[in-house]
Amino acid sequence: NLYFQGLKYMVPGARVTRGLDWKWRDQDGSPQGEGTVTGELHNGWIDVTWDAGGSNSYRMGAEGKFDLKLAP
């Protein structure tokens, strides 16, 4: 699974964008943008601060869902 392989790169400072299971509307800005991981992966959740200004926790394994992917 590509998403599980990418988890080791989901570290503080990593750049991310919305992924396969995104369901959080425009939390990442409008139009959709990139963000920066600000915390360690914990119980399948990870913290992100978006360039647009907001921050929140997103699923990276929790509930079998992956809200994020590494930015290109």
Rank of each mutant, 00 (worst) to 15 (best):
L7G: 08
N43T: 06
T49A: 09
V16D: 02
L20T: 13
N56F: 13
M10D: 01
L20A: 14
G53P: 00
W22E: 04
D67G: 00
W45G: 00
A52D: 08
L68Y: 01
V11L: 09
W22M: 05
K8M: 13
K69Y: 13
I46W: 03
A52M: 10
G19Y: 05
V37L: 07
V37F: 01
N56V: 05
N1I: 12
Q27T: 06
G39Q: 06
G35Q: 01
Y3V: 13
A71Y: 08
W50H: 00
A71M: 10
L2T: 14
G61Y: 03
V11R: 10
V16W: 02
D51A: 05
K65A: 13
G53F: 03
G35K: 00
P31C: 12
G6Q: 15
T49G: 06
L68G: 02
A52Y: 13
E40K: 12
E63K: 09
K23N: 09
L41C: 09
K23F: 06
R15G: 01
D47A: 15
V16S: 00
P72R: 13
D67T: 04
D28W: 04
G33W: 06
G61H: 04
T36Y: 07
A14S: 09
G61P: 01
G13R: 04
G64D: 09
S30Y: 12
W45I: 04
R18N: 02
N56L: 04
Q32N: 14
D28I: 04
P72I: 12
W22S: 04
R25M: 15
Y9F: 13
L68R: 01
M60F: 09
A62Y: 15
W50D: 00
A14M: 09
Y9G: 10
G6D: 15
R18E: 01
G44K: 00
G64V: 05
D47L: 14
W24H: 06
N56C: 13
A62P: 00
N56M: 06
D67K: 01
R25I: 10
Y58N: 01
D47S: 14
E40R: 11
V11C: 14
T49I: 12
Y58V: 04
M60N: 03
T36E: 06
D28G: 07
M10A: 05
M60L: 06
Q32K: 10
Y58R: 00
Y58G: 01
L68S: 01
D21H: 09
V16E: 02
A14D: 08
T38P: 00
N43V: 06
A62D: 04
W50Y: 01
W50F: 02
W24R: 03
K23S: 10
N1W: 10
E63C: 14
Q5F: 12
A14Y: 04
L2M: 13
K65D: 01
G19I: 06
I46V: 11
Q27M: 06
T36S: 07
G64N: 10
G29H: 05
P31R: 06
Q27F: 06
L68K: 01
L70R: 07
V16T: 00
R18Y: 06
D51Y: 02
K23A: 10
D26V: 06
D26G: 06
L20S: 12
T38G: 06
T36P: 01
P72S: 14
D28Y: 03
V11F: 09
P31S: 08
N56Y: 15
V48H: 00
R59V: 01
L7C: 14
R25G: 15
K8H: 12
D51M: 03
L70N: 04
P12E: 11
I46R: 00
L70W: 08
W50V: 00
R59Y: 03
S57M: 11
W45N: 00
A62C: 08
M10E: 03
K65P: 00
K8A: 12
K23R: 09
G6N: 13
G29I: 05
G35C: 01
S57W: 09
Q27P: 05
T49P: 00
I46S: 01
K65M: 09
V48T: 00
V16C: 04
E63Y: 12
M10I: 09
D51E: 05
W24Q: 04
L41G: 03
S55N: 11
D21F: 03
G29L: 04
Y9D: 11
Y9L: 10
V16N: 00
S55V: 11
P31A: 08
E63T: 05
Y3G: 15
Y9S: 09
Y3D: 15
V11A: 09
G6F: 15
D67N: 01
A62W: 13
Y3P: 13
K69G: 07
L41K: 05
D28R: 02
L7A: 10
I46D: 01
Q5N: 11
E40G: 12
G29C: 07
T17G: 07
A71I: 13
M10K: 06
K23C: 15
L7H: 09
N1M: 11
R15P: 01
E34S: 13
S30E: 10
V48S: 02
S30T: 15
R15N: 02
G19F: 06
L68E: 01
I46N: 00
G53A: 04
W22I: 04
G6P: 10
Q32S: 14
E34P: 14
D28L: 04
Q5V: 12
Q5P: 15
